[in-house]
């Protein structure tokens, strides 16, 4: 079952194990320069608001009601990262526009081992983008559907789904008890009147390159309780229409990476050298980033697409720990 607790999606599987739960949040962040240089991890600037689609069904597209789930406001070209929390092992599939963000293959509900199409919690504390190469991802950046930027459109040629799709599978209780239970033998884990058709759907496009590892599943496919899963469709609503739909103000626009860096605020590097990492997905490596696509289309890239000549001033190195902090402030 999934609950929406303020801005957190809580996945619980009491039928599998009393401790089988995890949380997923969507963090606002800086858009890193889309200049083909690899950048460190940007900070979290607070969580995106999440709302039940069912509460605003009369003001949202009919497809959104059919999908169910939740929605959140994002500005065009705004970036996000996904924060995973919880100690019980889970296999989490993340897709954007029903393109798997880890394997680059069309979304399916089931877990696949080769190529691995899921992240393993709690080893993976966060996911910032599409896995394009070993140790490198392309940042998740919100773009309107129908303009050709999203991963979905670049791979399928169709702007159909948009949004983000999540599927969570818990580890089998027996596996957890046998191998992983903390403290025992095993691995220690550290009224507004908007016509529904006026709402512009958004999807996630590949942005700038960032250093992030996606870890290989050390447990194997059989460790996961594959008969039990929870799915959530996360729709992306353009912030420009958020107030018309909900009556509430969207969050303010995030600062640019330059502004943030000029203030001397930190970026982050996270590296767990003890774990095997995924090689990156060929279909995703072939995608054009937002800036590259704009150049191909003969458009001017945004000013913050062009990159910065300097390295970030402050990079904090994080080590694996259960209480990783990657908070920024501005």
């Amino acid at each position: 079952m999934i609950e929406l607790n303020r801005e957190t999606l809580r996945f619980r599987f009491p039928e599998v194990h009393s401790e089988a739960n995890c949380s997923i949040e969507f963090q606002r962040t800086l858009r890193i320069p889309d200049d083909n240089n690899s950048h460190p991890l940007p900070p979290g600037l607070g969580t995106f608001p999440l709302l039940h689609v069912d509460d605003f069904a009369d003001r949202l597209p009919a497809d959104w009601s059919r999908h169910g789930g939740v929605f959140m406001p994002m500005y065009q070209a705004e970036a996000l990262w996904i924060l995973f929390s919880g100690g019980y092992p889970m296999a989490v599939k993340v897709a954007a526009g029903k393109i798997d963000a880890i394997s680059g293959l069309p979304f399916r509900n089931e877990l696949t081992a080769k190529p691995q199409d899921y992240a393993v919690l709690p080893d993976q504390p966060w996911l910032d983008g599409f896995c394009v190469q070993e140790g490198l991802i392309r940042q998740f950046v919100a773009m309107p559907l129908g303009q050709g930027y999203t991963a979905e459109e670049q791979i399928t040629g169709v702007a159909e789904h948009g949004g983000l799709q999540l599927v969570v599978y818990p580890m089998k209780a027996a596996e957890y008890e046998r191998r992983l239970r903390p403290g025992e033998a095993g691995v220690a884990y550290a009224d507004y009147g908007v016509a529904p058709q006026a709402v512009a759907d958004m999807g996630l496009a590949p942005g700038g390159l960032m250093r992030q590892q996606i870890y290989e599943d050390e447990h194997g496919l059989d460790a996961w309780e594959q008969d039990v899963r929870s799915r959530c469709f996360v729709h992306l609503l353009n912030s420009a229409t958020f107030r018309q739909v909900t009556g509430a103000a969207p969050p303010h626009e995030p600062p640019t990476a330059d502004d943030y860096d000029r203030c001397g605020l930190p970026w982050f590097d996270y590296y767990d050298g003890d774990r095997e990492t995924l090689a990156g997905a060929k279909p995703l490596a072939r995608l054009d980033s937002v800036a590259a696509r704009k150049v191909k289309e003969g458009e001017e890239p945004r000013t913050d697409d062009g990159g910065r000549p300097k390295q970030p001033r402050r990079i904090l190195k994080l080590v694996p720990d259960r209480n990783l902090v990657r908070e920024g402030c501005f």
Binding site: I2, S65, G68, G69, S230, F233
Partner: peptide, 8 residues
Amino acid sequence: REVRDGDW
């Protein structure tokens, strides 16, 4: 209250 999963 659960987040409703739909058809997708």
